[in-house]
């Protein structure tokens, strides 16, 4: 019965909720074709981090890392994958060096927020 409640009351028809699609659509619209994206998340948001990665594959490479992110690793990833944009997930999302960012709202049903923006050069 618990499964039926989850399936028919809580679950939606897609693994991507309408809010996921809206937030991903906003990021997709702002990203240049083929651009790589850094996604920084807390381990509590691991499901959504991987959800974003799969949603953008293969059009955009999404490099997922969990906060805290070391400066040398950030630099290495930016150089290796030519990253100029990032998404950050968290109750107070980590700042991987945003030049500016947009708050896309919370993750569906969770307190964690979604920030997207261009990184400092």
């Amino acid at each position: 019965m618990a499964d039926l409640r989850v399936a028919f009351r809580d679950a939606g028809p897609s693994v991507f909720t309408p809010l996921d699609r809206k937030q991903m659509g906003a990021v997709r619209a702002a990203l240049p074709a083929g651009a790589s994206l850094l996604l920084v998340a807390t381990t509590d948001d691991a499901w959504h981090a991987r959800l974003w990665q799969r949603a953008f594959y293969p059009e955009h490479t999404v490099i997922v890392r969990y906060a805290p992110l070391r400066a040398d690793e950030l630099k290495r990833l930016r150089d290796q994958y030519a990253i100029h944009h990032a998404v950050s997930l968290g109750v107070t999302p980590a700042d991987p060096g945003f030049r500016s960012h947009e708050d896309l709202g919370t993750l569906p049903g969770l307190p964690a927020r979604v920030w997207f923006g261009e990184l400092e050069p």
Partner: peptide
């Protein structure tokens, strides 16, 4: 069948098996 068509992915179902399928597909 009713549950299967309605139920969301559980962790491994999405993060491992369907993801491996996506990689294989691409």
């Amino acid at each position: 069948a009713a549950l299967n068509f309605r139920y969301n992915y559980a962790w491994d179902g999405f993060q491992i098996w369907a993801s491996k399928a996506q990689l294989l597909s691409v």
